[in-house]
Design a protein around this nucleic acid. Structure first.
Lengths: 196, 196
DNA sequence: GTCTATAAGATGATAGAC
DNA sequence: GTCTATCATCTTATAGAC
């Protein structure tokens, strides 16, 4: 009802959005405050007003990303799908990021730059991987209880491989700007979980 | 027998060695000619004498890397090991790169920076992944013929997942500077290939 | 081959006006 | 909040002396 409430995202939101896309496409070392400012239509000094340092901006974006991801995961959980369908949805997030977002997984991108990252950002990235592994292991475990997932599998070990394979396939796909590699790997992963 | 033949590597070799390490730890966007020059003990202008542009240096390094990797693969092939043992050796290269080299897989690192890479470098990276997938698929196929690898597996599909999982696990491990993640993923991968 | 010097531009960040 | 102006530094790269 207020006059400027609907579509008007604040400058901060615009900065976060552009910053996130640049982080996911060019990486931490690959973008500058000027790049962000140019796209938002302001000056780099104004970006510094909202985020004093590059580390501040990257930390906020990475923290948001982790929260957004957790929300998507929650939505998947609420739908009470078959475990394998849930895992497919999870892989679908990565697929969609490449196909429609034309970008990398933020944390997959940042992890490779670990040496250049401000420590708090590196820790957020670390936590992201840990969280996803825990969720994946839980889904696998539950699937085994329902006899819908191969019971010879070790949930935690497979979860680690599942996440690693998605991140790796994403990077390989990213390099050729073609997501078929990721698709093939996803298919393989899901197939291995089937009850024989 | 010559006076300065033994340990004396040429400046070019030193540049290539330092450049490679920097590429594998900081990435293409994360190092400069000055970084290389400082470590070699010369000036950046001298690096430009040997490699006119950054793209030239990166291309030479990436091409060498691909060749070196092919040589290691050849050595593995010549030893006539069990297929699963060969795959373990392959994974061991990645493990060793992290543990003893304290660096990422060069191509895993570069692939994430695809958007910033000179095109010839991006193509070398692409070819690296293609070559490894072909070799892995071949080993799996041969293992199936010998009845030493689970015959229900699709060699190419599993090879893609195998490589992706190693690259992804490496990046996740790299971010925490602890290779146990990569170890766990390697164990899982090899376990899945066992004849049941 | 290596150096000094330098260009021409980018970068992260700050001071101070509006 | 956003701007101009500016800083100190870094970056890729070249010209020309030694």
């Amino acid at each position: 009802m207020a006059t400027e409430e609907k579509k008007a995202s604040s400058k901060v939101d615009e900065i976060l959005e552009v910053g996130q896309r640049l982080l996911q496409t060019r990486g931490y070392d690959g973008f500058s405050f000027r790049d962000v400012a140019d796209e938002v239509g302001i000056k780099s000094a104004s970006v510094h007003y909202h985020f004093p340092s590059k580390a501040d901006l990257a930390l906020r974006i990475t923290n948001n990303y982790r929260a957004d991801f957790a929300e998507v995961i929650n939505t998947i959980d609420e739908q009470q799908l078959h475990p394998s369908e849930r895992l497919q949805r999870f892989a679908g997030i990565f697929q969609d990021t490449l196909d429609n977002g034309e970008r990398m997984c933020l944390c997959g991108m940042l992890a490779s730059e670990a040496e250049s990252l401000p420590d708090p950002v590196r820790q957020e990235t670390q936590q992201f991987f840990a969280e996803q592994q825990i969720w994946l292991a839980g889904v696998i475990e539950q699937g085994q209880a329902d006899n819908r997932i191969n019971e010879t599998i070790n949930p935690i070990q497979f979860a680690k491989m599942f996440l690693a394979a998605l991140e790796g396939a994403m990077v390989i796909s990213w390099n050729v700007r073609d997501s078929t590699e990721l698709e093939a790997v996803t298919d393989q992963l899901l197939q291995l979980l089937e009850v024989k």
